[in-house]
Design a protein around this nucleic acid. Structure first.
Lengths: 193, 193
DNA sequence: CGCCAATGCAAGTAGCCACTTGCATTGTTC
DNA sequence: GAACAATGCAAGTGGCTACTTGCATTGGCG
């Protein structure tokens, strides 16, 4: 059968080690040790390090579903859903996300893994566009709106890894959305973009 | 003398290669080629790869001075100085900054390089605190205010490296500050933090 | 029990990388 | 022009890493 140590256990180990050590720094030896299996078994079951990471990330994002069914009339509610999702993501997988983003630039193996998170971003774009058309948000490239909304949350997660002294309590997503909306309603904008 | 190829030329090459390939991915061979000198010369002049990066980053941040002399009565002006600085930094050295932040977590050599940027952050903290006491900004940990202010700018720079299609025009720092202030004045805050 | 596939174990391969070294060459300085 | 220090060149060293392989062991399944 598939073995005494389940695939999920191995995936968790991969994500943990990659988050701590980076992709290049995450040796297959360390991954095998963390998972409690032999290094040879790792390769017999998953073929290569790149394939192992791909499967692990796929599984990880599968359980991180973002429910963005149909945007309604409540901007704050829809934005809160988005901020909640990314806040939770950075809180639990911040090291992994940061690693993937950084290493995707020059490591094709890592870049290939980011397809699903990207498709998620396109759904976020749609929600933002919806509310822009309703006149509830400043009109601008939706991705730019997204950066302004989630940037504060992300930057905290990033900074925490650089300087552990600078650790701040997580910001309440509701506060983030409220402050964001006060700055991004179209009424008082002046010359925007 | 110091050689036909100046130290500054070598430093520029280091920063460029590290920004493109990451610290571990930046081979001394590639750095030497980019600088137009021999790999052996690189080690004879700078000793080690880690020391080379340290000197290069030191020089790079020296020319990136942030003038935060004495905060005045104009919140918008002081915040604009800060946003301008980080916007310019991410625009020209985004790849490098992201690399250092990521790799500092598990690479002591890289972490040792971040002392000066950190001291700069402490000056930013003081400016934020000053305006919080004046009642011009919501009272909260100053680093948190900083994240909210600069996060949008940074996230754009980060995203650009992951997905080159998602490249957005740089956001006007004045717009960033204006929107930020509308959300972070203490008056209409409600239950903050 | 007896079969078989997956595992553990230990050793090894091939490649890459930071860093070194010996020697010939070059540019500078007096 | 002579001395000298820095450079280029080529080869090499030692260490690390992804990945492999042969063999003994294990554990479920009929």
């Amino acid at each position: 059968m598939a073995g005494r140590v389940s695939d999920e256990t191995v995936f968790d180990a991969v994500l943990a080690v990659v988050a701590e050590q980076g992709y290049e720094g995450a040796t297959t030896r360390a991954i095998a040790d963390a998972a409690g299996i032999n290094e040879a078994t790792l390769f017999r079951r998953f073929g290569s390090k790149a394939n192992l990471l791909r499967q692990a990330v796929r599984g990880s994002f599968a359980e991180f579903a973002l429910d963005l069914g149909s945007p309604g009339d409540d901007v704050a509610a829809d934005l809160l859903t988005i901020v909640n999702y990314y806040s939770r993501l950075y809180e639990t997988r911040g090291g992994l996300v940061l690693t993937l983003m950084r290493e995707a630039e020059f490591n094709q193996e890592v870049a290939a893994v980011l397809g699903e998170p990207e498709s998620l971003l396109e759904r976020v774009d749609e929600v933002v566009l919806h509310h822009q058309r309703r006149g509830a948000l400043v009109a601008e490239p939706p991705r730019q709106t997204f950066f302004a909304l989630v940037g504060p949350v992300m930057m905290r997660a990033v900074a925490r890894r650089v300087d552990r002294r600078a650790t701040q309590p997580p910001v309440d997503p509701e506060v983030v959305v409220r402050r964001f909306l006060r700055g991004h309603r179209p009424d008082a904008t002046g010359p925007a973009t």
